[in-house]
């Protein structure tokens, strides 16, 4: 059985298991929020590796748009968080700057920054994740992988979301360095895809709304949103992230995500 088929097989067993579990547990389950989150997370499992290019649009109150370009590579690490490299293409003064991240399920992530002008790889204290990413409304935290283990969940109910029906769950980050106190997450009932997140800041103010659009299915099991929007309600600015040229199974290995590989980026 190929690795891909194995994951598909595993996925369907999980789905079956959860369907049975749901049927038995009835309406209210203390763990229902977690179960939905786990099912949703399965959509990100088994992809092995992916590459894509990203365009990030920063939109101010008046509607002026500034664009940033990045290329992005990701490697799945079974039993732990994923490894990724983001390389900046534009604006020009940061061209070649790269960020290597090793996400971990429970521990905080490891991150290294490569500065091509200095030829320097610099480890960054990854606790600093609530800050804005590239001047956008996304924070480093929004950009990193949202491992299920990093939150505590509560099931709230079901709600219509656009033309779908969604589960609404509340999650609270366990990491004390998170910029958020809680997040409301809308996950659709059909495919368990995250459709919308309300982010509440440290003062429990509804600071940002994130929406996920243009989901496409790859290899029959991997769902990738192609447009992610983040609206900041405090400053009226928003950021849009568009994914292009998404490709799975590039044959990446750990060596493509090492500190040494960072130094190759320019």
């Amino acid at each position: 059985m190929s690795r891909l088929h194995f994951f598909l097989y595993k996925r369907s067993i999980f789905l079956f298991f959860y369907v049975v579990l749901f049927a038995l547990s009835g309406e209210i389950s203390a763990n229902k929020g977690l179960e939905i989150a786990e099912l949703s997370d399965k959509n990100n499992e088994g992809y092995i590796d992916s590459s894509s290019s990203m365009v990030m649009q920063l939109i101010n109150k008046k509607g002026d748009i500034v664009e940033r370009k990045l290329s992005f590579k990701r490697l799945e690490v079974p039993e732990d968080g994923d490894k990724s490299i983001a390389i900046f293409e534009s604006p020009r003064d940061v061209k070649g700057v790269a960020i290597l991240s090793y996400a971990h399920k429970v521990d905080s992530d490891d991150q290294w920054l490569y500065l091509p002008a200095l030829k320097r790889v610099k480890r960054i204290a990854s606790k600093n994740k609530s800050g804005p990413f590239l001047g956008s409304e996304f924070s480093f935290e929004d950009f990193s992988f949202q491992e299920v283990e990093k939150y505590e969940y509560k099931f709230i109910g079901e709600e219509a979301c656009l033309n779908l029906t969604c589960y609404l769950i509340e999650r609270r980050p366990l990491d004390p360095y998170s910029g958020y106190t809680k997040q409301l997450v809308w996950i659709d009932k059909d495919n368990y895809l995250v459709q919308k997140i309300h982010h509440y800041d440290r003062k429990s103010f509804h600071l940002k709304t994130q929406t996920f659009e243009e989901y496409k299915l790859y290899e029959g099991f991997f769902w990738q949103p192609h447009k992610v929007m983040m609206m900041n309600h405090q400053n009226g600015k928003s950021s849009v992230l568009k994914f292009q040229d998404v490709k799975l199974n590039n044959g990446f290995t750990d060596k493509d995500f090492s500190q040494n590989s960072l130094r190759r980026s320019r």
Binding site: A125, N128, K129, S130, G131, P132, G179, K203
Partner: peptide
């Protein structure tokens, strides 16, 4: 040592 304060005084500034 190096120390970074993220979002000083509840702003975007680091």
């Amino acid at each position: 040592f190096e120390y970074t304060q993220v979002g000083i005084l509840d702003s975007r500034l680091d």
